[in-house]
Design a protein around this nucleic acid. Sequence first.
DNA 1: ATGAAAGCGCTAACAG
DNA 2: CTGTTAGCGCTTTCAT
Lengths: 332, 332
Amino acid sequence: MAEHRRPTSHDVARLAGVSRSAVSRCFTPGASIADDTKAKILAAAGQLGYRTNALARNLKSRQSQLVAILASRLDTPFRARQVKHLARALIDDGFRPLLLTADQPEDLGPLLSSMLDYNLAGMIVTSDTPPAAVIDECQRLRVPVVLINRNPHPDGGDRIQLDTGAAAAIVFDMLYAAGARRFAVLSPDDRTYTVKGRVDGFRDLAFGRNLPCAVLPCDGQSYAAGRSAMTRHAAALGQCDGLFAANDLLACGALDGLRQDLGRSVPGDMALVGFDDIEQAGWAAYDLSTVRQDARTQATMAVELMRNRLQNPDAPALLKHPPLDPVPRGTT
Amino acid sequence: MAEHRRPTSHDVARLAGVSRSAVSRCFTPGASIADDTKAKILAAAGQLGYRTNALARNLKSRQSQLVAILASRLDTPFRARQVKHLARALIDDGFRPLLLTADQPEDLGPLLSSMLDYNLAGMIVTSDTPPAAVIDECQRLRVPVVLINRNPHPDGGDRIQLDTGAAAAIVFDMLYAAGARRFAVLSPDDRTYTVKGRVDGFRDLAFGRNLPCAVLPCDGQSYAAGRSAMTRHAAALGQCDGLFAANDLLACGALDGLRQDLGRSVPGDMALVGFDDIEQAGWAAYDLSTVRQDARTQATMAVELMRNRLQNPDAPALLKHPPLDPVPRGTT
DNA sequence: ATGAAAGCGCTAACAG
DNA sequence: CTGTTAGCGCTTTCAT
């Protein structure tokens, strides 16, 4: 009863009266094996509770099905959604997602580099700060890397990235359609690649039409940052009738700041648009107009890029844009 | 230049002029090796870009550092926080978290069971529906399983679980202190173990004091469920002055339903307490009184239990309660 | 279709 | 302290 040792292919082979190779073939999808041998083996395996040992198998094939997901700020709604879809897409495609969360960049280097010991099949990065050195090392070891909404890396690497120009245009149109003509945009100091892209794109669009646009710095991309920025920039905001917050967390903060701290009415005094379409944007207390990033499509694309790269390591790096959809709600 | 093959300990050994065992020892923490040999090896390894192959290493030691985190509804704020802390605690303790998200139980069985092929060091379950069969299999393979806020499993298995009695008491006290005497509690139909515990505990506390407590069913544990339940139970709610929502998502929904759909004032007409202390509970539009589950301590405890079990597989199953803290805000 | 043999890259006795 | 030896559990030619 106390059967601690896991049964091996050897045990199964003996019980089924075949060779270990036969057992191996039985569990290898395309291998040629007679139906009744297979049945016999399966029976024996079932009886023993045999499971192939992925470690041993991977050792031979020099590659695991392990894919690292590198994500910071996992407790943030949009990031959580991204990771959820990424994990699912990977699993559906036969991979096994390893989760690396890293909020301080310095934790990351050694960790990630120790991950590489697992012969990763790939790595997907949604972190704010992908440490360049690690990505280099992945490239060197020919581990496919897919960057989601991150700076391009010198050595290439496939990327999924929202079209910042299109994003800015959608936001601008929503605000303009709501009647706004004097704009402001909340610009986090830790601007990640696409945040910067849409903030700058938005400002340029306004300037292009000779419309004023104040760029309001705020510290970080959190709810608290959005809220406190409202008080800090109260004067500037007094001149505006259309505000773009670089993401929904900031937007929710801004909305509360505007309404509760500044006593302004939204959308009465000022229209507001966020970005990402996190769940809370749809909650009645916010009912925030925003732009939806489709995390699911994003994830599917990322896995697809990774798989392609795995098959064709030397293909040129690809850049794909997932779809973006305006979600007009009560703040415009 | 085109050095595709990863260098092996053999390569390093040759370059450094030592044996493969020496190389192995060099990368094994407690092994005895001369300082200058070690230096030589490290130099050679650095030059070649050598990394130990975890797969091979684990094959020998019959165990990986891989720990599966089984989580459903990852895009839910509290779950995301749990997973974040779990991942971090595991990594800090030298493990590698594999993320299995499963929203439909049926996906899960085969997946998890294929995970076992990786010789998991352990498994941590926060899913709503831990499939019993898989847990059984883990037990059989002597893979430590830690259940977080889940039903006890017949075969044992260590558990981290909030003290539902204490939880109910904290909530009851908050509501009672706010002057409430006629209670209601929102009871999701998919009641998970601890949700059921606190809902029932709360009701019993009220009954124990001969105070009325209406148990209001709602479908699920989401914001939408909380909100729609308010309209549906408007009549019953008219009689109440204290509502307990089994979690913050429900509570936020209830708050919006109460204020915006029913036109009731909170806390004026009725006090409200949620559970978990998700980030949104602190947002100005909600400012929700709640009870904090400390995800970080929870995670630390889980990893600790797992590690103990690993060292001592036959110790009796443990049950630990993480701390709980009332967070009084604007709804009481 | 099947079995024998030869490793994948590493570690762990065991001598020296 | 170091090298030799013997595997971990599996897959994969190569004959048969």
